[in-house]
Computed example of a mutant assay.
Amino acid sequence: MKQTTIAKRVEGIGIGLHKGEPIRIVLDPLEADDGIVFYRKDLMTTIKAKPQSVINTQMATVIGNEKGYISTIEHLLSAISGYGIDNIKIILDANEVPVMDGSSIGFCMMLDEAGVVNLEAEKQIMIIKKEIEIKNGDKFVKISPSKNPKFNYTIKFNHPIIGTQNYLFEFSKQNYIKEIARARTFGFLKDVQALRAKNLALGGSLENAVVMDDNSILNPEGLRFEDEFVRHKILDAIGDLALMGMPIFGDYESYAGSHELNHLLTLEILSDAKNYEIVKLNQKEALEYAKVFS
């Protein structure tokens, strides 16, 4: 099975969630083994998408270096992972990825326009060798060995619209597009007001997030899925794990997880070579796995 990139350059414009300003985004093909690379055109600095580049996880996953940072990368990385893309360059002229409609479907549309092509080098897969868990009180994320990656996520919010939700997602490109990609980020009106008082979330609106007051959803169109909230948490988790730079053969499970716990999980996996094995699939395995991205 071969590594992949996109067939051609594509570009778009969207609003930044925090600054509320238009951001131009360009997706470019890359050669084999280049990985996922972000480029801040305004600062002329490159930031590799990897766990060691993460500098903040408070409200989004943020990567950076001594020259600058890029925020809210998880939705784009989620789409890239869903499409099985190994090598791609993301060019931005601001310090965040545009929020689009609050989901990853806009990025999926860009990837559909670009197309996906094989490169000459063999695709590498990370095989999880033993269960690894990160806990914070009753909250946890964990990953365990599996040949058919799944995401089993549970959330619990003291809100009449959300409550307790669970979703089990079996990873494949088509399942991702159908079940996960359209799930939007969400927040509460009182939190949005507090953020705006700090000059944050200036680009947030009912056009790019599900917003709730104490009792109801403010978006006139309502939800895209009855359990859209937990599906978006899976979308985020896929994006956070994409920082590993290759597909992961492991089952992910979480209760009330977060970007921070996901980040700590990636670091813990990499902390001991006994936790994982990086392999190239044999011909039979490769044919089976290729169906995941068909």
Rank of each mutant, 00 (worst) to 15 (best):
T4P: 13
T4A: 00
T4F: 08
K8R: 14
R9D: 08
G12K: 08
I13L: 04
I13E: 13
I15Y: 01
H18K: 12
K19N: 12
K19R: 13
P22D: 03
P22I: 13
I25T: 12
L27P: 11
D28K: 14
D34K: 13
Y39M: 05
R40D: 11
K41C: 11
L43Q: 05
I47V: 05
I47M: 01
Q52I: 12
V54F: 03
N56R: 04
T57F: 09
Q58D: 11
M59H: 11
T61D: 03
V62P: 08
K67C: 02
Y69G: 01
E74C: 08
H75Q: 07
S78Y: 02
I80N: 05
S81E: 10
S81V: 05
I85D: 04
D86W: 03
D86I: 01
N87M: 04
N87T: 07
I88S: 04
K89E: 08
I90D: 02
D93I: 09
N95F: 09
E96T: 10
P98E: 03
V99K: 10
D101P: 06
S103P: 11
S104H: 02
F107C: 10
M110L: 15
D112S: 08
E113R: 12
A121M: 10
K123S: 04
K123H: 07
I125L: 13
M126Y: 01
M126L: 08
K129R: 13
I132D: 12
E133K: 15
I134P: 08
K142V: 02
S146W: 00
K150P: 05
N152I: 15
Y153F: 15
T154P: 08
T164D: 06
L168W: 07
K173A: 00
Q174C: 00
I180F: 04
I180E: 07
R182L: 15
T185I: 09
G187N: 15
L189F: 00
K190W: 05
D191L: 09
R196I: 04
R196A: 02
K198L: 06
A201L: 01
G203S: 06
G204K: 07
S205M: 11
N208T: 12
N208H: 13
N215D: 04
S216G: 07
L218Q: 06
P220S: 10
R224I: 12
F225M: 08
E228I: 13
H232W: 12
A237L: 08
D240S: 09
G245P: 03
I248R: 02
I248Y: 05
F249M: 05
F249Y: 01
F249C: 00
G250E: 01
D251V: 03
Y252M: 08
E253I: 03
S254W: 12
Y255F: 15
G257D: 06
H259I: 11
E260N: 14
L261V: 04
L267S: 05
I269A: 04
S271T: 01
I278E: 05
K280Q: 10
N282S: 06
Q283N: 14
Q283M: 05
K284G: 01
A286M: 14
E288M: 13
F293A: 02
